[in-house]
Design a protein around this nucleic acid. Structure first.
Lengths: 252, 252
DNA sequence: TGGGATTTGTTCGTATGTATT
DNA sequence: GAATACATACGAACAAATCCC
């Protein structure tokens, strides 16, 4: 186990950390929340991973209380699950749940197109194409990056609607989509998606809502069904090891 | 050693409470969350009401820690808002936000009907009609009850789908709908809704999905537009006074 | 605009519940 | 199946930020 139960001689440095962090824009809980979320989405934390509050706290240099409220938010978001008096774990949805989530996602993304198409701007198309370009680039060197960008394409669409609630919901189903692909997806399953993003943009440019909705639906069905059989067991790494990469909060 | 806490005369009864609650299914935070949520939905806590952690804690006989995690959940749900270092308040959405929320709600409830209609059972219709009956009954004697039941009709529909995520989302938009009506709705604005619920059930019984969706859409537009002008200032009551009615946790 | 009262952000101790040997 | 280690639930205390007159 990871327990590096050192004595309390670190209190001084911890207080130093505390002062430094307090100057940041957000609070500590935000930081932990964001970092854990990214770690889950990028599949560094596999579904089912247990996250004891004080192990996480040690990783980020904060106390359990801070970790706790971050976990509460992640649970509310469906990225983690928790039962009373038991360790919180990264959510591990069943196949049934996964399908239900993707059905909801299809409905939500249809709503996005319906809201967005009437007020679509040229700058939107430009930014979408630029995003797809970066997706193609990332595809060559970084799988976590690819996963994240693939989801952010859909998030970008939602953001263009300006509908805060819709943005939040899409954000959530996209995150959980990554989680699901981590569970059931074949490795590299996202690589075909880039073309589908491009044809969708083309349909949007033509102003063809029905076709765009059809393509989006097809795309999401494809994403959902691409992951099915391969339930390979993910590699075991220590929690401290995984989270150490997420400490310098690069929320850009 | 144990810290002396005999200076508070309520200690004994508090420990009694605590022991009793510990035996409950959920934890204290659940209780506070549920109670606050109900108080907001039933419009006992008006939008914009400030909820200092300490005051709420005193009302429920728990510490700030417990209140805090309840508030985090309510913020995640959109029923409250909070900025760093500032008191959390009951959400007070703008008219623009309110419309956006209702647009999302229409999309979600369409999804509910699309999921439910193919597998609709007789028992569903029975339960829906029974619910409407209780709505009519409540309409005569209790306005908070009426508000709550009116929302629960939609929640019931969602629950019949068995789609957990859809249930959660509908639950959220329904709650926020109550909040919005509290802000912008005329008094008694929910009273016309009962008939609309009935005609919807009839369409469902005929198996007419398109008609059901049309009626639902009409219904929601009606609910959304019934509230518009009347922004009467709600009566001022003390926080302790309001919350005292929500302490005995009657979560049926 | 200044300063005291209020409120939040955070840490840590204790009690209690869960898992494991 | 009991003892022990581990983890969470909750409360109290203190510094820093905000509120309000």
């Amino acid at each position: 186990m990871i327990r590096g139960k050192t004595d309390r001689s670190e209190t001084a440095s911890q207080q130093g950390l505390k002062a430094k962090r307090a100057n940041r824009a957000g609070n500590l809980a935000d930081h932990v929340y964001t970092s854990l979320r990214r770690a889950i989405i990028e599949q560094a934390l596999a579904p089912g991973t247990k996250l004891p509050e004080d192990s996480v706290g040690t990783s980020f240099g904060v106390s359990r209380t801070v970790v706790r409220s971050a976990i509460v938010r992640l649970v509310a978001e469906g990225l983690m699950v928790q039962q009373p008096n038991m360790r919180a774990t990264v959510a591990s949805p069943s196949l049934e749940e996964a399908r239900a989530i993707f059905r909801v996602r299809r409905g939500l993304e249809r709503m996005v197109l319906e809201e967005l198409m009437p007020r679509l701007e040229r700058s939107h198309l430009t930014r979408l194409r630029a995003h797809v370009a970066s997706e193609e680039q990332a595809k060559r060197h970084s799988e976590p990056e690819t996963i994240r960008l693939s989801g952010e394409f859909h998030l970008l669409l939602a953001q263009f609607t300006g509908n805060e609630l819709l943005i939040r919901y899409v954000s959530e189903v996209v995150s959980r989509g990554s989680l699901i692909l981590a569970l059931y997806g074949r490795p590299h399953s996202s690589e075909c998606a880039v073309n589908e993003h491009l044809t969708l943009i083309d349909a949007m440019e033509k102003g063809d809502l029905a076709e765009a909705v059809r393509l989006m639906d097809e795309h999401l069905v494809a994403v959902a069904t691409r992951g099915l059989l391969d339930t390979d067991v993910k590699r075991e790494r220590s929690l401290q090891d995984i989270l150490s990469a997420y400490r310098p909060a690069g929320e850009g």
